[in-house]
Design a protein around this nucleic acid. Structure first.
Length: 234
DNA sequence: GCGACAG
DNA sequence: ATCTTGTCGC
């Protein structure tokens, strides 16, 4: 799947406004999906490595992993993260041999200045259910959730509830959950809790994060050694 | 007007 | 995201 990269911030924002009309916010989404994918991108200068890890939704064991190397094509701009990560992520997702029932993104979905964060963008382009799980604040205000695992509060932006601040482990910093495409907020949080039996972040996120970093190093090693191998890892 | 700002 | 040492805790 090929994607055009915008050349300006204005052009990027126009694309978001356009794609936002394709969002499906009515589908409740998969309650306990059998296959859940985690996606992440690691960077080093202008090089990048995208990774997709598909886990069994019940055992959380890794079912399939895919990585692709590439070059940065869009500088990071708050609110436009998707344009930086999506080209490589789509390529990685294309190489999967199994189709995940849910994709967990690193970042935000509806909780976004124009209501179209990375999770929404990836969902619309793939047609698959997606959710966003952010590690730090981006937009919105919220009260702190109680210290118990599973407690949460509304993430509000411009008077709208755009996500939830969810405590995935007792006494540990909460994560920021927002829907992407074809999943409702209750289902999104339910799944995030299923994916965090032990750590703060979803297993999907942890696995894809390690995978992308490893791919970046491996690719670098082949260059330093001077091998004439592929520039894209799969 | 100035700063903040997912990854 | 990435740059970075030691350190507290299981």
């Amino acid at each position: 799947m090929k994607v055009r990269t915008p050349r300006t911030v204005l052009e990027a924002e126009a694309i978001q406004d356009e794609l936002r009309s394709l969002l499906d916010l009515t589908d409740p989404g998969p309650r306990d999906p059998g296959r859940v994918a985690g996606v992440d991108v690691a960077y080093e200068g202008d090089r990048l490595a995208a990774a997709v890890a598909v886990l069994d939704g019940t055992t959380l064991e890794v079912v399939e992993e895919v990585t692709v190397g590439g070059q940065v094509t869009f500088d990071y701009v708050p609110g436009l993260l998707a344009f930086r990560e999506i080209p490589a992520l789509l390529e990685a997702l294309d190489r999967l041999t199994v189709t995940p029932e849910l994709i967990v993104c690193d970042g935000y979905g509806l909780a976004h200045p124009r209501r179209f964060g990375l999770a929404c963008h990836l969902g619309v382009l793939t047609g698959l259910p997606t959710i966003g799980v952010g590690k730090t604040t981006f937009v919105g205000t919220y009260p702190d959730p109680a210290p118990e695992r599973g407690s949460w509060t509304d993430l509000t932006l411009d008077g709208d509830v755009v996500g939830r601040v969810l405590r995935t482990q007792r006494g540990v910093k909460p994560v920021f959950v927002s829907v992407g495409h074809r999943v409702d907020l209750d289902t999104a949080c339910h799944n995030v809790l299923n994916l965090t039996p032990r750590y703060r972040l979803p297993e999907t996120t942890r696995v894809s994060d390690r995978l992308s970093r490893r791919a970046l190093i491996e690719n670098c090693r082949s260059v330093l050694i001077g091998s004439d191998q592929r520039k894209k890892t799969g």
